[in-house]
Structure formats: C-alpha cells, structure tokens
C-alpha cells in the first residue's frame, strides 16, 4: 500500500457530488414510470452505481492497493451470486405446483391494512371480493 495519501482535487469531489445528486434525481424520476419487473432492476442499478462512486472516489478505493479493489469486487460478486441463484428459484416457481408460483403472497393478511390498488395506483374492489378463495387458517 502506498505510504502517501492521494490528494484529490476539489473539482473531482464536486463533480462526483453533482453526479450523486443527479442520480438521486434519476431514482426519483424513474419511480414515476412503471417499467414492470424492470423497476427494481433499474433502481438497484442506480443505487449500485452511486455506491460505487462513493467507494471509488470519496473512500479513495480507486487509488488504493488493488488488492482492496479485488476484495470489494469479490464481495459484490458473492452478493450477485446469492441474489441471482435465489431469483432462479423465486422467479421460476410453480412448474409443478402452480399454487406456489408467486413467492410473495399478494393475498396475505398484511395487505388487508393497505388500500388495494392495481399497478397504476387506481383503487380496486374491496378486500372481501379479493379474498374470496382465501385460506383463513392462519387467523
């Protein structure tokens, strides 16, 4: 590891800070657009980009010993492995038993307390209609 600290020009800091603010704006802006299943992917991509900028410039990883960069990239890789393989499960369920198709049960009692809307935010029918075939055993 180098013994001298890298001196970053103020300009770089300001550019990165500006980019972070801009990307925050992007996050807010895309939240108003419905991209279906790409909503989460886009939100995570922007968040990852922002986190990387912070780590690389504000935390000086870019100028640090490259071994530390390897460790950082490895941790991202393992997180990627975990999420990808778990999604291979939750994204493809229901091949044999269709009732387990949705990993998140949209009929869960949790949602009873929330106003039900469709994907565009318009109110839909009352809970009673929605739950006509619901199993009540957990109450």
């Amino acid at each position: 590891m180098s013994n001298e600290h890298h001196i970053t020009p103020l300009r770089t800091y300001l550019i990165i800070a500006g980019s972070l603010l801009f990307l925050t704006g992007v996050t807010v802006w895309v939240s108003f657009i419905d991209l279906g299943s790409f909503n989460i992917i886009l939100a995570m991509a922007v968040a990852t980009l922002k986190a990387s900028l912070v780590v690389l410039f504000f935390m000086h990883l870019l100028w640090d010993d490259k071994k530390n960069l390897v460790v950082f990239v490895m941790s991202l890789m393992f997180l990627g492995i975990f999420i990808t393989f778990t999604l291979l499960d939750t994204g493809f369920r229901g091949g044999i038993n269709p009732e387990v198709k949705n990993s998140i049960n949209s009929k869960a009692s949790f949602y009873d307390n929330l106003p039900l809307t469709d994907t565009h935010g318009n109110p839909v029918d009352s809970h009673d209609n929605h739950h006509e075939d619901k199993d009540d055993s957990h109450h």
Partner: peptide, 12 residues
Amino acid sequence: PALGGDPVLYQH
C-alpha cells in the same frame, strides 16, 4: 407468508 414473506427464503 401470512405477512407476504417466504419461508423458503430462510433456507436460501
């Protein structure tokens, strides 16, 4: 699952 979760996620 009653709260919208997934018990199999624990196993993952």
